[in-house]
Amino acid sequence: MTRSALLVLADGRFPAGGHAHSGGAEAAVAAGRIRDAATLEAFCRGRLHTTGLTSAALAAAAAHGHDPAKLDEAADARTPSPALRAAARRLGRQLMRAARAAWPGPELDALAQAFPKGAHQPVVLGTAARSAGLAPLDAGYAVAYETVGGPATAVVRLLGLDPFQATAVLARLAPEMDAVAERAAAAARGPVDELPAASAPLLDITAEAHAGWPVRLFAS
């Protein structure tokens, strides 16, 4: 096991399709809910403690070795928006492709074969972390970081927001990312049914609206 594998997995350049997703930021920018660094920070903080925690716990549970099929079912129940379920499965399939090239192993192969249309992305991420020899906590960190890193990068492109300010937002959120990763890792030791299910009503609602836009820059 090497801790540096976590840097590879969490790198924004890891070719798993994340760059085309804004994590709800494109819809929030259009609605005027993200206008500057302060509103980006509030958005990211809310996303981190809701879907971020839920996804981090699913990933940590997969890295812990829980049955991925059961986790995928749990992810479905925690994702009422069909647009977000579709995005999660699509990203899961894209991540699977990259993960099998980076850390090939029988568990990734089995998951790919059980879910040819893609498993939920956090489940794939946790299995990839496991295949890379990483711990559940590491999987939690990777998800917590991508939960806020995705919207921040998207807002730099959408608003022309100063990239230094956007990066400072991420740095300020670091202690909370730690807390979310640790909560996720702790929850992963418990039963799948009791994993966190924190949700964000506006992310669910605006994801459906965004999926219906005729013209958009990001896939979600």
């Binding site: 350049r13 070719p15 798993a16 399709g17 994340g18 760059h19 085309a20 997703h21 804004s22 998207a154 492109r157 959408l158 820059l217 990001f218 896939a219």
Partner: peptide
């Protein structure tokens, strides 16, 4: 392409 068409054909 998330506002980055070259990323989608080359990097990711």
């Amino acid at each position: 392409t998330g506002a980055c068409p070259h990323t989608a054909i080359r990097d990711d």
